[in-house]
Design a protein around this nucleic acid. Structure first.
Length: 577
RNA sequence: GGGGUGGUGGUGUAGCCAGGUUAACAUAUCAGGCUGUCAACCUGAAGAUCGAGGGUUCAAAUCCCUUCCAUCCCGCCA
């Protein structure tokens, strides 16, 4: 029994006079008493079906009872619409299907919310009835985009000689990084598996095994708090290669990005992508993931520490930005001051350029050459406002970074489009105040820059890493590094991180593997959900995941997580406290 | 763990700041009408203990406290 001879959305003038069978959902019914129109929707789109009592009294009568989301099968004839009834807004708008027979395949309850393209109910409802939410074309399109990205990715890497190899989902827990999701072992009571935060160790082991080009579209798990762009389970494009250096990764990924955007979005991303050093990025943008869609770069004003203004004398770092297009009103300055205070800064110094010179409550405490120098530093002209934060380096960077983004948005400076960059030469490790120890800024398998690696012992925070992040529009969408492949160096790094004893045990298998001729290798991992989210111009990662979790990590559709039976627990030897 | 926003018929919102008739509007639903609609239209009907609990008050959707849920952010995310 045939359900369809054609797809609804694909019918065109060329199909006129064909006798066809269609199936799908009733998207909309317009009942004129005499004539009844329904918009019939399937995976391909929508077509209008007309019920006319003159051509089929029986199906016309049946069509009266149709409601939204009923599933029906229709036999009929494609015909041209009357000229005045052509609908230019839909692809099938020049034709319609005159129904001769209507079969109701499955009625539907009244949906809990209207399934309309441009209206969205509360997110919790959307997720509870995700199958209804996903009936909207906008939702479908995002998952179709995701499919295309995955297919194109596989083809691209296959053509480059990469092998797709799966790695385990049940692995051992290691202390580094994010919190693990744990899975109790039944066979060995009291022991636990962890779900992988990334396939990092396995892909390095694959390199030791001699697979010189590996990739995987890997599901990863991190038990941390959620955000608009963070889910507890997410998908990573994981890549690793042997006998390569940074340049190989840069050009591979640049070609990949170019192909992906060109083939799927028809957008030509210029390559090579610009590279900005980590230090430079912090100086110019206050962050290691700069949004390059607009300028408004941060300038250093260290010379002000010589001035008579006390806060400038005591602050370790003085930097500022120039904004054009602000009103410069007292109220506005107060708001901006409040804004940077919420970001941790003590306050905001501001200067307005009026009549060629700077005016400010602070102006009377500064000498004329100092004011001139501030203005020159920004090439500021009448109407510009210069905003300065003086504080500890980290605070200044963060406050100005946030201020820059906020003003960029407020002043409408952020251009449409996709601005990629590489952030390179980050520090190998950072000092953690909380833990009173050095922590790897990427991960402990990252190779130090050869020129720098002797100073690991002298000043660890000054050692640069052979690591790189890929940044798109102010979002980190990927990161990787050239790895350590020699056991001694890896042990040295573990030593510097003061996790030697622990690490020896946790990563013994890796160190052992490195003892058997590990090739030089490196790689990268891209957050695919995030990349797709940006390609789709979606505001949340949830929009590009078929069945995402809420912010508290629940699934309203299935009510996960849920309690388990005492029998299940006792089998695992687990007791809930 | 902390901060912001929101929770009112099925859905989306208004009302809340400044307490006081029958909680308003749109849409969906139901019934009737209608032969060219495509956000169909016209007429009518039904539908809400205002997230939950407590308090203040003669009187609470409105003020106060607690709590839950959603969402955004900080912390966290090698």
């Amino acid at each position: 029994m045939a359900y369809k001879t054609h797809n609804n959305g694909e019918l065109r003038l060329a199909d006129v006079d064909k006798k066809i069978i269609l199936s799908g959902w009733v998207n909309k019914r317009r009942d004129h008493g005499g004539l009844i129109f329904i918009d019939l929707r399937d995976g391909s789109g929508i077509v209008q079906v007309v019920f006319n009592p003159e051509s089929s009294l029986e199906s016309h009568a049946k069509a009266h009872s149709l409601r939204q989301e009923w599933v029906v099968k229709i036999e009929g004839i494609v015909r041209m619409r009357p000229k005045e009834a052509i609908n230019p807004h839909i692809a099938t708008g020049e034709i319609e299907v005159l129904a001769e027979n209507l079969e109701i395949l499955n009625p539907s309850l009244t949906p809990p919310f209207e399934i309309v393209e441009d209206k969205e109910p509360a997110e919790e409802l959307r997720l509870k009835y995700r199958y209804l939410d996903l009936r909207r074309q906008v939702c479908k399109d995002r998952l179709i985009l995701r499919h295309k990205v995955m297919q194109r990715t596989r083809r691209f890497l296959d053509e480059k000689g990469f092998l797709e190899i799966e790695t385990p989902q049940l692995i051992r827990s290691t202390p580094e990084g994010a919190r693990d999701f744990l899975v109790p072992s039944r066979l060995i009571r009291g022991k636990f598996y962890a779900l992988p935060q990334s396939p990092q160790l396995f892909k390095q082991i694959l390199m030791v095994a001699g697979f010189e080009r590996y990739f995987q579209i890997a599901r990863c798990f991190r038990d941390e708090d959620l955000r608009a762009d963070r889910q507890p389970e997410f998908t990573q494009l994981d890549i690793e290669a042997s006998f390569i250096d940074e340049e190989y990764i840069y050009s591979l990924m640049e070609e990949f990005i170019k192909v992906l955007f060109l083939d799927i979005l028809g957008i030509d991303i210029p390559i090579p992508l610009i590279r900005i050093s980590y230090d430079d990025s912090l100086l110019r943008f206050g962050t290691d993931k700069p949004d390059l869609r607009f300028g408004m770069e941060i300038r250093d004003l260290a010379f002000l520490s010589e001035s008579d203004v006390k806060i400038f004398q005591t602050a370790s770092t003085i930097r500022g930005i120039k904004a054009s297009g602000l009103s410069g009103s007292r109220k506005e300055m107060d708001e901006l001051t409040e804004f940077v205070k919420t970001k941790g800064a003590g306050g905001l110094a501001w200067f307005k350029v009026e009549g060629g010179s700077l005016s400010s409550p602070l102006a009377k405490f500064l000498k004329e050459p100092e004011l001139k120098r501030i203005q020159d530093r920004f090439s500021a002209e009448d109407g510009d406002v210069i905003l300065i934060v003086a504080d500890k380096k980290k605070v200044v960077e963060q406050a100005l970074s946030e201020l820059r983004l906020s003003l960029g948005e407020k002043l409408g400076l952020i251009k449409e489009g996709f601005s990629f960059c590489w952030i390179i030469d980050p520090p190998l490790m950072e000092y953690s105040e909380e833990e009173k120890a050095y922590k790897p800024s990427h991960h402990p398998f990252t190779s130090p820059k050869e020129t720098d690696w002797q100073i690991i012992f002298i000043s660890p925070e000054k050692t640069k890493a052979r690591a790189y992040d890929l940044v798109l529009n102010g979002s980190e969408i990927g990161g990787g590094s050239i790895r350590i492949h020699r056991r001694e160096l890896q042990e040295t790094i573990f030593n510097s991180l003061k996790i030697q004893e622990e690490a020896k045990k946790e990563f013994d298998f890796l160190l052992t593997a490195f003892s058997y001729g590990a090739p030089p290798h490196g790689g990268i991992a891209l957050g695919l959900d995030r990349l797709i989210m940006m390609m789709a111009k979606a505001s949340s990662i949830r929009d590009v995941i078929a069945f995402p979790k809420t912010q508290t990590g629940t699934c309203p559709l299935t009510s996960a997580p849920f309690s388990v039976s005492p029998a299940q627990l006792s089998e695992l030897g687990i007791k809930v406290l």
